[in-house]
Design a binder for these strands. Structure first.
Lengths: 343, 343
DNA sequence: TTGTACGCGTTATCAC
DNA sequence: GTGATAACGCGTACAA
C-alpha cells in the first residue's frame, strides 16, 4: 500500500513559483495567461506526472463530464450498438459514459436513476424498461437542468429530447411489402403495447391491411411479452395450427422472426413460398439464418450518436429544459430471401 | 435555467439543529449515532429531498465507487455480455461502471486509460486492444493502489488480477473433437498471435494434431487479423481451392466459422460430411446458422462477475497490489450439426 | 498577466 | 453521542 503521492496543481505552483490559480488557468488554456507561461506550466505538469482530478473539477463546477445511460439490457445487438455510438461521440468530447441496466424492471430503473443522479451526471440517455409506466423519477434531473434524451422506447408525456425511428411507417411498409409479395393473410408478432415502439409498429400493420382491403383477423395478432426466441416458436406453432394459417408474418423483432423461420422449416413449410417472413432490427442473426431474413433497419449507432450530441449541445445552447425536441430517423426495408417471392 | 437549489447535509443540519457531522454520520449508519437520531435524520433527509453528492464523497475519500472498463468494442456478443456481468455485480455493491472502447487501437487504449485514471476510478477492468504491445500505461493505476483486472485478452508480463479461460485446452479439445469425427486434414483460422488467447488456441490445435499423428500443414493454418466474416469467407475459398482441401476447420471464433459454413454451402460442399466445422465463443449466430455450428463456450457473464468481484474484494483485503492472481475458467465443447458426423 | 481567498459537499480527526 | 474544524483538488471573483 505504498501509494505514490499524487501531484496537484499546488505542487506545480510551488515548483514553478506561480500561484495555484495560474496553474489551473494555464492547464485550461485560459486566455489571460500568456502563451509562454502556458507552455512552461504544461511542460512542468507533464514532467512532474501531474494528472488532473476530474472529481474535484466536477465538484467545483457542479457538473460532471459524464453521461449516464439507463437501458434495459446491454447484451442485445441494438443496445450494445447504441451504447457504442454514444460512447464514441461522448469520448471525442471528453465525456465519460456510465452505464446501468434495468433488466426491464421499473424498480431497477428508479434505483439506477437515483445512483446516476447522485453521481451528478451531466446528462442522461434513457430507453425505458418494459415495465415502466410512471416516469416521475426523471423529474429530479429536469429540476437541476440536467438534459435527458429518451431513445427508442420513449415516454408519451414527458417533455425532453427524444430520438426515435418512425415505427408507424416502418410497420406500415413492412406489412405493405408482404402484401406486395402476394400475402393475403398476414400475421403480426406484437410486442408489449405499453411501449410506443410496439404500439406504433402494430398500428402501421393494421393500417396497411385496411388500406389494401385485407380483413383484420385477431387470431393472427400475437402479443408477446418479450418477443424472445421461445415466444416466437410458440407463436409460430399456434399460427400454423390454425385452420387457416397465415401466408405471411411481420414480427416486431428479429429474434422472434428467426425462430419463426426455424420453426416453420421444421414443420416442412416452404419459406417464402408458403410463408413469407419479415422481422425488425436487422440483427446479425437476420443475415445468417437460412433463408436470410427480410427486416427493417434500426439505426442504432446513429441514434446513439445523435443522443449524445443532444446532451453535448445542451450546455452551449443553455437551453430551456422544458421543451420537447424530437428527432425521428427513417428506416429502410431490407428485402432478403425470407420474403422475396417475386423475382 | 431556474434550477432548484440542491439540499446538502448543511441544510438538514440547520433544519434539525444538529451539526453537519452528525448528519453525515447518521446517513452513513455510523455506530456512534443513536438509532433514534438516525431515524429522525433519515426521515428529514427524505422529506427535504436530500440526495448525496458522490462526487464530494469520492473527492474526500480519495476513491470513487466506480469501476472503469477498457475494452476493444462493446457491440460484440462476448463483450456486451461481459459488461453486463460486470455491471450487475458492481451495481449490487453500489458501484458505477464507466465504459470506454479502444476499437483495438493502442493509442485509444492509452488515451482512455488516462481519462479513466483522471476520473479516479476505484478499479479497472481491461481486455487488451489487438494492437497493444506496451502496457506501461497501466502502471499509474498500480502506483496508486488501484486494482486492475485483465479479462480474456491479458498481458503476459504485468502482474495483477487476471480472469481467463483455458484457451490451450479449449483449442486442443475442439481439434480433438474434429479428429474424433474422422477428420484428418484439419484447418485452423487463427487470430492475431500477439494476443494470448489466439496463440494458446493455436497451440492446442497443433498439439492435438501431433498427438494423434496428423501432419501439420502450413497451408491449412490461416492467420486472420480480426477473424471477420469477410476474412472467414476469403480463407474458406482459399482452403477449398487447394489441391487437397481440408475435411475440417477449427475457427478461433464463431464469426469466421459461420462465414465458412455459408461459403462452403454455396460451393456445394456438404457439412459436416465433406467438411466439419467448429467455432469458438457460442455467439447467438452459432445456433442460428444452418447447420448449427459446433463451438466452444466462452463464459462471458461469469467472467464479468468474477472480474467485478476481484475489484470489490480488493478494498477489504487491502491487498498487496503487486501479486498476480489468475482465475482460469473451464470451457465446454458444444457439439451441433456442423461437426456431428458420427451419430 | 498573475495572486489571494474562498467555496463546492463531504468525511475524518479530535475534542467534549 | 455529538460538535467544531480541517482537508480532499480545483476554479473563479476579486484584487493587484
Amino acid at each position: 500500500m505504498n501509494q505514490k503521492k499524487e501531484v496537484t496543481i499546488y505542487d506545480i505552483a510551488r515548483e514553478l513559483n506561480y500561484s495555484p490559480s495560474t496553474i489551473s488557468r494555464a492547464l485550461n488554456d485560459h486566455k489571460s495567461i500568456s502563451k509562454k507561461t502556458i507552455k512552461v506550466i504544461k511542460k512542468a505538469a507533464l514532467e512532474m506526472g501531474y494528472r488532473p482530478n476530474s472529481l474535484a473539477a466536477s465538484l467545483r463546477n457542479n457538473r460532471s463530464n459524464t453521461i449516464g445511460i439507463l437501458i434495459s439490457r446491454i447484451n442485445r445487438p441494438f443496445m450494445s450498438t447504441l451504447i457504442s455510438g454514444i460512447e464514441e461521440t461522448a469520448r471525442k468530447a471528453g465525456f465519460n459514459v456510465i452505464i446501468s441496466q434495468s433488466n426491464d424492471s421499473y424498480e431497477n430503473e428508479v434505483d439506477n436513476s437515483k445512483v446516476l443522479y447522485d453521481s451528478r451526471v451531466g446528462g442522461l440517455i434513457v430507453s425505458l424498461a418494459m415495465e415502466t409506466r410512471n416516469i416521475e423519477h426523471f423529474q429530479q434531473f429536469r429540476d437541476q437542468g440536467i438534459p435527458i434524451v429518451f431513445v427508442d422506447r420513449v415516454p408519451k408525456t414527458f417533455s425532453s429530447y427524444k430520438v426515435v425511428i418512425d415505427n408507424y411507417t416502418a410497420g406500415y411498409n413492412a406489412t405493405k411489402h408482404l402484401i406486395d409479395q402476394g400475402c393475403r393473410r398476414i400475421a403480426h408478432f406484437a410486442g408489449a403495447q405499453r411501449r410506443n415502439i410496439y404500439e406504433d409498429r402494430k398500428k402501421g400493420y393494421l393500417d396497411a391491411l385496411s388500406e389494401y382491403g385485407l380483413p383484420i383477423d385477431k387470431d393472427l395478432i400475437i402479443h408477446a411479452k418479450t418477443l424472445s426466441f421461445e415466444e416466437g416458436e410458440k407463436a409460430t406453432n399456434k399460427l400454423l395450427d390454425l385452420p387457416h394459417p397465415p401466408d405471411g408474418i411481420f414480427s416486431a423483432n428479429d429474434t422472434a422472426a428467426v425462430s419463426a423461420i426455424i420453426c416453420a422449416k421444421k414443420r416442412g413449410i416452404n419459406i417464402p413460398e408458403d410463408l413469407a417472413i419479415i422481422g425488425f432490427n436487422d440483427d446479425p442473426i437476420a443475415s445468417i439464418v437460412d433463408p436470410p431474413l427480410s427486416t427493417v433497419t434500426h439505426p442504432a449507432a446513429k441514434m446513439g450518436k445523435i443522443a449524445a450530441q443532444r446532451i453535448l449541445e445542451h450546455d452551449q445552447k443553455n437551453a430551456d429544459n422544458n421543451l420537447s425536441e424530437v428527432t425521428v430517423l427513417s428506416t429502410e426495408i431490407i428485402v432478403r430471401a425470407s420474403s422475396k417471392r417475386i423475382k
